[in-house]
Amino acid sequence: MANLFEESDERFLVTLSSEGEDKMWQVNDKGEHEFTGGKQDWIAAAKAAEECSCFQEDDEDELVADENISCYNCRYRRWTAKSFICCK
């Protein structure tokens, strides 16, 4: 996934989501990569984390997804009002 970020100049990054080809990430005004699934797309967040070599589980008190490996549980996610930013 990190390679995708580096190699893509497109505003919307396209990768495989739980429901097939979909826009899982978008680049916000600050150039950050924001998850398009919001805070409730458990399947897509888990799939994204499984495909990511940078996933690291956050402190136990900050885990919110039932799937252990999920971007929602990653120490490199930063919550936003509607979703989260991947900081890797």
Binding site: E62, W79, C87
Partner: peptide, 12 residues
């Protein structure tokens, strides 16, 4: 959680 609030990752 708000863009005008600086925080690390979850603002708790």
């Amino acid at each position: 959680i708000h863009p005008d609030i600086p925080y690390t990752s979850h603002n708790s």
